[in-house]
C-alpha cells in the first residue's frame, strides 16, 4: 500500500512567499501513529523526493489533533519570482503519493 491509500489529504501550499509546506492528514489515528513510529516522513526521504539538501528541510511536525504530519521546506525561489512554476505552491505534493506505506510491516 502507498501513502495515498492511508491519507485523507496530501497537499502542498505556500506558507508565505519563501516556504513550501506539505501536509499529510491520515485517515485514522492508527495510521498516523504508525507513520510516527516508523519515522515515515523523515528528512532523508524528503531530500530524496524533492531533490533538496537537508538544510532546506526546515521542520517536520506531528499534529495529533488532526492526525497530521507537516513538512516545511524552503521554496526554490520566492513565490512569483522569475522562474516560478507554481505561484500558490498547490501542486508540489505528488512525490508524496507513492511513498510505500506498509501498515504493520514497514519496508
Amino acid at each position: 500500500m502507498y501513502l495515498v491509500d492511508a491519507a485523507a489529504v496530501i497537499r502542498s501550499k505556500n506558507a508565505g512567499p519563501y516556504e513550501l509546506t506539505l501536509d499529510v492528514i491520515f485517515k485514522t489515528t492508527r495510521w498516523f501513529d504508525h507513520a510516527i513510529e516508523t519515522n515515515l516522513l523523515n528528512k532523508e526521504l524528503i531530500c530524496q523526493l524533492y531533490r533538496v539538501s537537508e538544510d532546506d528541510v526546515l521542520r517536520i511536525v506531528n499534529f495529533r489533533p488532526a492526525n497530521a504530519i507537516k513538512v516545511t521546506i524552503v521554496r526554490p525561489i520566492a513565490s512569483g519570482a522569475i522562474g516560478e512554476t507554481d505561484v500558490y505552491g498547490a501542486q508540489q505534493h505528488a512525490p508524496l503519493l507513492k511513498i510505500v506505506f506498509a501498515d504493520g510491516a514497514p519496508k
Binding site: 508565505g16 509546506t21 521542520r59 511536525v61 492526525n67 507537516k70
Partner: peptide, 17 residues
C-alpha cells in the same frame, strides 16, 4: 468536524503549534 477544523490549523502555516 474535528478533522476539518484541526486540519485547517495546518493550512498555509509552517508550524501548526
Amino acid at each position: 468536524t474535528i478533522a476539518s477544523v484541526a486540519g485547517h490549523s495546518l493550512y498555509e502555516k509552517s508550524n501548526p503549534y
